[in-house]
């Protein structure tokens, strides 16, 4: 088994570099990356605070992450492990965020739906990169050359603050969407779904039902 294709990619990638990415490629990143999740989105988009970076000139890579990190008494930073958080719950803010910041690489856990990809990733020329595992926090830590800044720590706390990280061959990440809006996870789900009926054979649905849920195990819950 040869294993997946490995690629070095800039965090301010060219349109050609993004177009070249295929589902399942393994990517390592170079350049500046920032963390932004619900705290940053709400502050920037709902409270209309000025984003403290020049985007996308400095970085087009948005990491759905809060690091295990500390701010030392002298103001310097120590970052240990970094791991993504699940992205599906940020689709409320992402279309506006992408438009505003020109983000081309959304990096997180679990990906989004092909509807999200087709709806606003593809029109913005963006793709989704998934972290691996999940929880290769120590490996990703080795790809951090420097922690450049932390913004909005006082307003949002360490876990929700906007961390700016300088990456040097940071990875691995897996390409989970492409410029056609195809979704790696949905492709895998479809393959697995063929076997599901057989695994469920003989089992019984619960006698007491619950409201609003899917009874089809091939459905997703995100």
């Amino acid at each position: 088994m040869s294993g997946p294709r490995e690629i070095r990619l800039s965090t301010t990638p060219t349109a050609e570099a993004i177009a070249d990415l295929r589902l399942g490629d393994v990517v390592y990143l170079d350049g500046l990356m920032y963390t932004a999740r619900e705290g940053v989105y709400m502050r920037a988009l709902e409270e209309r605070a000025n984003i403290p970076m020049d985007l996308p000139a400095q970085s087009a890579a948005n990491f759905h992450c809060s690091p295990a990190a500390r701010i030392n008494d002298d103001g310097s930073f120590d970052m240990g492990a970094v791991t993504a958080t699940a992205s599906f719950r940020f689709n409320k803010w992402l279309p506006e965020w992408m438009e505003k910041t020109g983000a081309k690489l959304i990096i997180g856990k679990g990906g989004m739906s092909s509807k999200d990809y087709k709806g606003y990733f593809v029109p913005n020329g963006a793709v989704y990169l998934s972290t691996v595992g999940y929880g290769t926090g120590a490996l990703l830590g080795r790809g951090i050359e420097n922690v450049e800044a932390v913004h909005w720590n006082e307003e949002l706390g360490l876990a929700q603050a906007m961390w700016v990280i300088k990456c040097n061959k940071m990875g691995p990440f897996i390409v989970a969407s492409d410029l056609h809006g195809e979704c790696l996870f949905e492709r895998e789900n479809a393959k697995i779904a063929k076997n599901v009926a057989k695994v469920y054979e003989g089992t019984k649905p619960a006698v007491l039902k619950r409201y609003g849920e899917s009874d089809d195990p091939t459905d997703e819950v995100i």
Binding site: S66, T136, G137, A138, L140, G141
Partner: peptide
């Protein structure tokens, strides 16, 4: 790597 670097295995 986590053991070598004495770094948390996972960022979460």
């Amino acid at each position: 790597v986590a053991k070598e670097d004495r770094c948390a295995m996972c960022g979460d």
